[in-house]
Design a protein around this nucleic acid. Sequence first.
DNA 1: AGCATAACCAAGCAAGCGCTAGTGTAAATG
DNA 2: CATTTACACTAGCGCTTGCTTGGTTATGCT
Lengths: 192, 192
Amino acid sequence: MNVATDSPRRQQLTRIAARLFMQQGFDRTTVRMLADAMGIKSGSLFHHFADKQEILCAVIEDSTRHALFSARRALADAAPTTRARLLALARVHLDTLHDDRHAHGVALYEWRRLSDEDREHLTHLRDAYETLWLQVIEEARRAGQVQGDAAIITRYALGALNWTARWYDPDGPMDTAQLAHELVDMIVAPAS
Amino acid sequence: MNVATDSPRRQQLTRIAARLFMQQGFDRTTVRMLADAMGIKSGSLFHHFADKQEILCAVIEDSTRHALFSARRALADAAPTTRARLLALARVHLDTLHDDRHAHGVALYEWRRLSDEDREHLTHLRDAYETLWLQVIEEARRAGQVQGDAAIITRYALGALNWTARWYDPDGPMDTAQLAHELVDMIVAPAS
DNA sequence: AGCATAACCAAGCAAGCGCTAGTGTAAATG
DNA sequence: CATTTACACTAGCGCTTGCTTGGTTATGCT
């Protein structure tokens, strides 16, 4: 149940499942379709996962852990100005959202299909991620670079970024760096 | 297929369907569950709707038409300053999002379950709504109150607002007017 | 009275669903 | 060499699904 402890085989299957769950939705993706895409028979699937629910949980957990890990590293590497730290978070958010777009789409659209336990477990991971953002925005607020309630700004920023999943075309003319800049310009007092 | 032309009975059934679709998701809501909640038998459902897909389309169409109508009226009634117009749009967006929260949640989560034709049809309605926003934000940009690309700002703003569906608690301490102000403060140059 | 229409119901079909049971096999382990 | 483990297979059970059929009842118009 963890990126580090999962067998390579299981991680590979999880990625395939993420693609199908995103393309068809969880309910419409049958275990037979999953097995076909994985190159095994439907019965064999249950050697790797206890049930269909566990596959969904694995998809979301993998991608969330990866995002959390990347964001922490980006913050550690970023210049110590609040603006640079915010920009680093935004860039990493957009990049992981897009690189792992299947899994993050699943996390968005299929959240309610999780069992109560799985959802609570994944909520903690999510909260850890949001807290990274909240802390940086709270820094920015104390430095006078952001006005208003830090919690609301955080959720607005994350909402704006997550919504890009619905309209941003990675093959289009814009790149994620531009988008990240545009977001930071929107939430902090306009810079030079 | 229209708020004005739909029979009252059909609109009533559509509202019930919106609630169930939001609570359980489209795929997990069976025609029998719908019929039960409507107080009729499952077969009778197909007197009002050609198939299950058409119910989904009706749910989304009704709510989108209502939002478009409300936004147009709010703009007509708003004071002529760009800030007032933006605030009016934000307030109406949050209010309809919340009043009609079941149906708008369905529009968010079940968009991909629509048939291609239905989706194209509803996309036009959506575009009409987004255009209202884009025009006001473009005004604001020309007036120097907003920096950056108007199209991106529009999508960021709508994303931030739509995301409130995932965290805003209408029974909590905040009201939608505060939220709307917070958004406008975020995207326009900070006012007094 | 005669008729049209909207609204409903009981029953059930064909298809598809998640999952289980039991078995085979090649590689790792003692 | 004997045993275990990991992974895959075939076959199919029990159940639910969206939708259809064929017919009934209530309302209101001409």
